[in-house]
Each structure stands twice: as C-alpha cells, then as structure tokens.
Design a protein around this nucleic acid. Sequence first.
DNA 1: GTCTATATGGAGATAGAC
DNA 2: GTCTATCTCCATATAGAC
Lengths: 238, 238
Amino acid sequence: MISLAMPRPSAPKSESTRALILASALAAFRERGFERVTMREVAASAGVALGAAYYYFDSKDALVTAFYEQAQAEILPALDRTLAQSRSLEQRIRAIIQHKLDYFAPNRRLMAALSSHIDPQNPLSPFSADTSRIREQDIACFARAVSDSGVKLPPSTLPYLPRLLWLYQMGLMLFWVYDRSPNQQLTTLLFDKTLRMILITLKLASLPIMRPLHRHAGDLLHAIYDADPNANFDQAPL
Amino acid sequence: MISLAMPRPSAPKSESTRALILASALAAFRERGFERVTMREVAASAGVALGAAYYYFDSKDALVTAFYEQAQAEILPALDRTLAQSRSLEQRIRAIIQHKLDYFAPNRRLMAALSSHIDPQNPLSPFSADTSRIREQDIACFARAVSDSGVKLPPSTLPYLPRLLWLYQMGLMLFWVYDRSPNQQLTTLLFDKTLRMILITLKLASLPIMRPLHRHAGDLLHAIYDADPNANFDQAPL
DNA sequence: GTCTATATGGAGATAGAC
DNA sequence: GTCTATCTCCATATAGAC
C-alpha cells in the first residue's frame, strides 16, 4: 500500500484557481464572443499567468468542455425532478430539451465553439469517447422519458429510440446555435413542429403499412449502433 | 467608355500560378491531412513565396473552397447526362449522390475541413451567401430529379422537396467524412437504407392519415424557407 | 497586377522557480 | 503540485519591388 493518498476526491487546494479561470473565461466569452477572446486575456482577467491557464485547461476549447460538464451536472437533477412528475412522452421530451435551451441561452454564442468539433476522434466532440459519460447520462434521460410512456414500436427499433431522440436534440441545438431570428423564434417553431410530427409518427408506426419501414430501420440501426467494435475501424486522425 | 478591358474573362496571365498553388495544396492535403499542412509548405512545394499563396487565396480555408468550386464545375455536366437518361426518382437521387461520393473519395479527409464551418455567416459555410451559387446549382439538380418523376405531395410541401433532398445529401456526406468503417461501408448502408425509406415515405405520403403531418410540415417549411428576409435578423457575428 | 520579404499577434509547449 | 517566464510555430497582414 503506497499511501492513503485519496482522502478528498478533489482537494480544495487550488480548485478555486481553476474555478476562477473558468469563470473569468465564461464571462469574457459571453461578453465578447469565444473567437475574439484570447487565452492571454482569460489569464489576465483571472489574474494569473498564461501558463497557469494552460495548466488547468489543455486548450482554449477545453474551457468549453469544462463548461459543458459543469452544465450537465447542474441540469441533471432538475431533469430528474421533471421526469418524476411522470407526464406524457411529449411533455417529457419537451421539458428535457426546453430546460437545456433555457439553461444554455445566456451562453448561446459559446455553444458555437462546441459545435465545430464533429469528428468523433476529437476529444471535444459530443460524439467522442472522452465525452461518453455526459452523452450516456443524457441518453439515459431520454430512456426514462420513453419508459412506461406506452410507446409502441417493434423490438427491432424500440431500443434505439432514446439514442435517436438524443440525436434529434443535438440537431435541434445545432440549429439553435446559429439561429439569428429574433429571440431564436425559428428554433421554437422547429422544435414545436418537429416534436409534434415525431409523436404523430410514433403513433402511426404501429400500422401494418409501416412494416417495410421498420425492417429497413431495424437493419440500419443495428449496423450503426451495434457494430462489432473490433471490426478494423480506421483509427487514423483523418 | 473607359476601355474594352474584358476581352478574356480570365487572362491566362498567371492563372497557371493559381492552379499550381491549388494543385500543390491538394496533393499535400491528400498526403498529410489538411490540419498538418502549413501554408508555408503549400507555398514552398509550389515554388512561390508565402505571400503569393495568400495573393491568390485569402486563407487556408479558401483553398478548400476553391477545390469545392472546381469540383462542382466538373461534376455538374456528368449529372446533367445522368439526369437526361430519365430514370426513376430513386435511381436519379442515387446517381447524383453516389457520383459525388465517388468524385470526392480521394479527397475525403479534406472534406472534413469544409464541414467544420456550419455557421451561415462564415463565407466558407455550405449555407453562406457566398456559396449560394454552388448551393443553388446543386439544389437545381434535385429539382430536376423530382420533376416529372410522378411524386405526389400536397402543394404546401412539394416545392421544398428539392431543398430537403439537398439537406439529406449534406447530412449523408457529413456522416461519410467521419466514417472510419472499412471502405466507408457504414455510409453505403446508411445511404441505401435511408433512401429506400424516403421513397417509401413519399409513397405513403398521399394516404389520408398523413394529413396532420402535412399541415405541420407545410407550416414549418414555409416559416423556415420563405421567412421575410427583412425581418430583423441578427447580423452580429455570434 | 504579381509577387517577395518581413512583421504581427496568438495558440500552445516547456523549463524550471517555488 | 502550482505557477511564471519564455519560446516556437503558424496563419495572416503589409510594405513595397518588379
């Protein structure tokens, strides 16, 4: 036994410095936009040297990831409460996504930085292995929203519904980030209309005429999500 | 009359230099990946000074745009021929998209650079005003594929079908760019399955039960695509 | 108009002080 | 472990030669 060296998971030693740097950065980003803010300014406004900022955050983008993680931690409990009030699937999904839009609204411009990394090999990507914890938590929310909601889907597609809803959320937020309409009203409309259409489609899905669609969807989803991870996928950085 | 100063639309003066720089850049990108290649290397391998490269191309990204424009010019005639052989809607769409995938395959990694600009305000974005000419040409292809194909859709949604198909194509290519499966076989499957599903859905669309979907879709599409451009949209750079 | 030489400013890396 | 000072490399800008 080397030592009992993990009594406090995150020693408050200088956790405060980290928090200070992050807070300064977010304030600057909100005020002047992510692109225009330099790491030098972040460090200066936090009262530390440039190297200190890089000691706590590997890159400028890492600040965004930290914000994203912090946000997730703050949002989850609220979603738990909302889901507990067991309402309809539509109301549950609406509540989940709307809560996130509201939460992120003050930092909407900052989210643009997040959305520029789509490559799953990029650690900052919402699809990367590094962000899988956040992603899984998020998908779990949709899984709870689906459970005991009475959705009727064949077993070949039902298991993928939470992941598809998560993907829907990501697409919606991507639109929102770049939505310049007054008060992002286009996003509101897109959200409302597409969600209604999804719910209608889920109801129609049990009709016999939809059978061929299910077959194709099931095949595709299985191949994409349950692909053998040992298949020789290319690990080169593009 | 100042002068007859436009006899040759693009004087071959040193159009060749431009072509040389572009070719050198593309070769380097193919070989070592867009990110790892510096403008210095591009200039050096073309045998010109750094400034010369910037004289012809405003930025490193502009090289990608130039490639994209060149590609579009080379692809269009081929698509014209394909569409003239008036086949079914499915075969037409399949031919259009497959031709692009084949054409871009050698430069697939380069396309990743294109896809990192989603912001419509970014000149390099496929959704920007600057790339509207390419975009419109591309959408026109899908419009021709739809025309006289016998698709039955209500007048509230039919006019948007070409644009939706274009969007479908963009999404598919985004997936393709980051698809590390052997020979991008996952993309092939995604393409095949989703296209079949789209065609089935278009056939089912005339059923009366689909009426509520059409209403929502029509409202949404009208708001998104036919929005008053004079509405006070935010022009700030995020 | 074409192009070279040189300058600027920022992201990220690192050596070592404490 | 925490942080400062300094360094490298690059995209991009610009002055001016031809």
